[in-house]
Amino acid sequence: MSEVHKNFMELSFASRSENESFARVAVASFISQLDPTMEELTDIKTVVSEAVTNAVIHGYEEKTDGVITIRTWIEGQKVSIEISDQGLGITNVEEARQPLYTSKPELERSGMGFTIMENFMDEVAVDSREGQGTTIRLVKHLKTHQQTLQH
């Protein structure tokens, strides 16, 4: 029996909107060692984009001096991603996770960020404290190659 493949990365950057694309590309390229399908890569890019955008818009209200941290673990075919900010936090997580709920309709938000994360990932956990910040934990089990070949 060979040991399970494990790897880890951590990345911190300023809460600037131009870092949204940097963040999703960085996580996607780290994940590519697992040889994911195109669809899995797109799913991961999209959810990272959602969580980072939320930190920028809601956590820091577009102030650019905040810090966003992403940690990514790989264990076998399991990918775990944690996105945290030290921003405003979420008062009512239950309500925030409802499809179409947004606290900022005036900014043309659709309220779909959490719904997209839930659809694309196997697990979504939200840990938030008012005035202290938010951490989103996402888990996805990638298909192994054998599974891909069977389909």
Partner: peptide, 13 residues
């Protein structure tokens, strides 16, 4: 080649 919920918002707008 890529779109997220921000795209949904701008299209809906």
């Amino acid at each position: 080649t890529f779109m997220d919920s921000s795209g949904l918002g701008v299209v809906l707008g």
